[in-house]
């Protein structure tokens, strides 16, 4: 019973954090109509820079801010210099260019810092509170609170601000953004920058758990992919619900079945949802306009 409660509650905790990964992908998808494969590596750059600062004596807060700042910058640069310009050849080349960027960044990191996993600092392991007998550390609490406020912030941004509304519209209709007074290209760059920031933020909570390496960052991608396919591509809320469900499900799988089955269960549940609801749980069914 203890075991069940632990996997449920901690599942929700990591799930909410993982859904941030989905949210970052949705932000890019909304303006550009494709998916980025490079978000994990963008986070990795920020995390390694932050780790270097931490090891040379920076406090945790400064480390965290540095991680987010670097990821934001790298995300914006990748979008501005590589992927958005390649859109002129179509969505497929643009999506492929994110794979190219991922290969280049991970190669550079492998050359400079090496492939060995590193431990990454966290907010604090000490117990903050306990729910139903399950102890939660300050890191867990911070992860949930920060992720929740980011989700609320994104929700408000997309429904209230002019730029957010334009972002929602631009993928449906190129002109919509321009009509709202925000150029198409600027929207895309903003979305890449925001997605970069989200990856860095997410990395801060995930790196202590998975330990930091050029391979482990790709886990973020897998969870993010599953979250958005299950949740529905254009839905931030869907990413939150699906991410949380995934967190619980993977925790239950590794507790009661086998940790080696976790990725397979993730993939299988994604296929199952696709069979029943092709547009995800919360995706709008889109009719092609002709």
């Amino acid at each position: 019973m203890e075991l069940l409660q632990t996997s449920l509650i901690l599942g929700v905790v990591v799930g909410i954090v993982y859904s941030l990964s989905g949210a970052g992908l949705v932000v890019i998808f909304r303006t550009s109509g494709y998916i980025s494969f490079t978000q994990g590596d963008i986070a990795a750059v920020g995390l390694f820079v932050g780790l270097a600062a931490y090891n040379s004596g920076a406090g945790y807060v400064w480390t965290a801010l540095l991680v987010i700042a670097v990821s934001t910058l790298v995300g914006g640069l990748v979008g501005a210099l590589i992927t958005v310009p390649l859109e002129k050849h179509g969505h497929l080349p643009a999506a492929l260019s994110t794979i190219a960027t991922a290969l280049i960044i991970s190669g550079l990191l492998n050359l400079t810092v090496g492939g060995d996993p590193r431990s990454f600092p966290e907010v604090s392991r000490s117990e903050a509170l306990s729910i139903l007998g399950v102890q939660m550390s300050w890191s867990d609490v911070a992860g949930v609170l920060v992720s929740a406020s980011v989700f609320i912030g994104l929700g408000v941004f997309f429904s209230r601000s002019r730029m957010g509304v334009a972002m929602r519209a631009v993928n449906d209709n190129k002109l919509a953004g321009e009509l709202l007074g925000v150029p198409d290209r600027r929207l895309k760059l903003v979305s890449w920058t925001v997605a970069g920031a989200l990856s860095g933020l997410l990395g801060l909570f995930v790196a202590p758990i998975l330990s930091l390496s050029t391979v482990s960052v790709n886990t973020l991608l897998v969870f993010g992919f599953c979250a958005i396919v299950i949740g529905g591509f254009d839905s931030i809320f869907g990413a939150l619900v699906a991410g949380t469900a995934i967190g619980v499900m993977t925790n239950l799988t590794s507790t009661y079945l086998d940790p080696n089955l976790v990725p397979t269960v993730l993939w299988a549940s994604m296929l199952l949802v696709l069979l029943v609801r092709p547009n995800g749980l919360f995706g709008r069914r889109k009719l092609v306009r002709v």
Binding site: I35, F37, N218, F225, V229, V262, T264
Partner: peptide, 16 residues
């Protein structure tokens, strides 16, 4: 191109 997501998740699952 979104088939990439499902196939990536599958490829990730295979070794384990």
């Amino acid at each position: 191109i979104f088939t990439a997501l499902a196939t990536f998740a599958l490829a990730y699952a295979i070794p384990t």
